[in-house]
Simulated assay, not measured.
Amino acid sequence: MPQTPTAAAKRQALATQIRDARFVTAPGIFDMISARMADRMGFDCLYMTGFGTVASLLGLPDAGIATFSQMVERVARFADGTTTPIVADADTGYGGLLNVAYAVRGYEAAGAAGIQIEDQEFPKKCGHTPGRRVIPLADMVRKIEVAVDARSDANMLIVARTDARTTLGLDEALRRAEAYRRAGADILFVESPESEAEMEAIGRRIDAPLLANLVEGGRTPMLTPQRLDEIGYGMAIYPGSGFLATAAALDGIYGAIKATGTTNGAATPIYPFSEMTRLMGFEEVWAFERRWAE
């Protein structure tokens, strides 16, 4: 059985890549099938999406409904079942300053390589959706300061997200991003810029690692990694790609079963059962049974 990197080693690997300004691409994971599938493909980082994780866990909107306990359990399961560093969504930090401290400590203990905290009011709303409101800048600055102080590993990345662009404009979002950087955030996440020109402006203004949130059907243009790197971004996440593709596949195959009573001839691709057993680790189970069989 291959040796799994420690959580500290995974944090160090990702932090080094960010600090060395080597571009990072991170697909969204939302359950253990998506986590295992992405893990074996050699990405530098995986991103635990709040939308997808809440949807797969509870079947509910990403609207501040999932609790810290529910989310940290998912972080631990993802981190334990993969070898790739994970940056995990922690919404608003699940409350006030004390909650933020516990969130950072909990995510770090669970094995995350980074934690994302946003400046929305509670209950939060999913990015790229309307009606998001933000807390006062000074309150979020204190949250970032607490988050930085709470981590025990300096390689535990603090990702500070501002949702100010949609309701308060780009200038306010940039002002907040600069303040969050001064407070100690390692990565700045200006949510929902609405054009390539806005993304260029963010890259010119913010002298820090920047994260681009690329959502199919969202507000932000889907730029290539090469273009993002050119304009000053250091990381791109694709939080919805996995669960949107999964939903499309399920819709197709379940529709075929409903319409015809069979999957024979269905247009939706079917992942080979033999590959799924391998992905889930059945070969290790069979090897164990052969070794210890009477």
Rank of each mutant, 00 (worst) to 15 (best):
P5I: 11
P5C: 12
T6R: 10
K10E: 08
R19C: 09
R22S: 14
D31Q: 07
M37C: 13
D39R: 03
D44Y: 08
L57Y: 13
L58E: 09
L60C: 11
A66K: 03
S69E: 13
V72C: 09
E73S: 15
E73D: 14
A79C: 15
I86C: 02
D89F: 01
T92R: 01
Y107E: 02
A112Y: 00
E118A: 07
E118H: 04
Q120D: 07
F122D: 07
P123N: 10
K125Q: 12
V134R: 03
D139L: 09
R142Y: 05
I144Y: 02
I144W: 02
A150M: 04
D153R: 08
L157T: 04
T162D: 07
R182W: 10
A183T: 06
D186A: 11
D186S: 13
I187P: 01
I187V: 15
F189R: 03
S195D: 11
A197R: 14
L210V: 08
L211K: 00
R227S: 11
G232D: 06
G234M: 01
A236H: 04
F243Y: 14
F243I: 15
T246I: 13
D251C: 10
I253M: 12
Y254Q: 12
A256F: 09
T262H: 12
T262P: 12
T262S: 15
G265P: 13
A266N: 11
L279K: 05
V285K: 12
R291S: 11
W292A: 07
A293F: 11
